[in-house]
Simulated scan of single mutants.
Amino acid sequence: MEQLGIRLAAHLRAGDLIQLDGELGAGKTTLTRGIGEGLGVRGAVTSPTFVLARTHPTAGGVPLVHVDAYRLATALELDDLDIDWAGSITVVEWGAGKLDGVSASWLRIAIERRTGAAADAALGPGDEVDAEEEPRHVVVEGVGPRWVELPPLD
């Protein structure tokens, strides 16, 4: 997930909005860490769960804003965070249904990982998988005019 974030960062510019969907532990914050690394964030990218949003300065001058919208109900509450949407690159975790009206375009990234019995069934006898190495299925979808053409991320 981190490597995907690093590759994605090369295509981002001020005003870009990224919506991350996925269950707890799917890799949303890890992907955001990769984006931060690719953008040259100064300091660590950590989960904004308890503060709702963190702004990270970058070497390139365009800040990375990392938002946890889990406790927000609407786009109005998200907009109340007073984020500089046009002047930053914004990543919103748990943003499904909360971006309409905030921006005309965003990149939606859905992350799925096997859990429970499905994860166990995928392992062979004696196999062990480190949580950081668990395979993920990632779907990238562009919404609006900015993302008519998706960048190559492989």
Results as ranks from 00 to 15, higher is better:
M1N: 03
Q3W: 06
Q3K: 12
L4M: 06
R7M: 06
R7W: 02
L8A: 08
A10G: 10
H11T: 13
R13I: 11
L20H: 02
L20E: 05
D21V: 10
D21N: 15
G25M: 11
A26F: 08
K28P: 06
T29W: 13
T30R: 13
T30P: 03
R33C: 10
G36T: 05
G40Y: 07
G43R: 02
T46H: 10
S47T: 14
F50R: 02
R54G: 09
R54A: 12
T55R: 14
H56L: 08
P57N: 11
T58Q: 04
A59K: 13
G60K: 03
V62A: 10
L64S: 04
V65T: 02
V65C: 00
H66R: 02
L72W: 09
L76P: 05
E77K: 04
L78Q: 00
D80R: 09
D80F: 14
D82E: 13
D82Y: 12
I83F: 09
D84Y: 09
A86S: 14
G87E: 03
W94A: 04
G95A: 14
D100Y: 11
A104C: 12
A104L: 11
S105N: 04
A110T: 15
E112G: 12
A118R: 05
A119W: 14
D120G: 07
A122R: 06
A122P: 00
L123H: 08
L123E: 07
D127I: 05
E128P: 00
V129K: 06
D130M: 11
A131V: 13
A131W: 12
E132H: 13
E134W: 13
R136A: 15
V138Y: 05
V139A: 13
E141K: 14
W147N: 06
V148I: 14
V148T: 15
L150Y: 08
L150G: 07
L153R: 00
D154W: 08
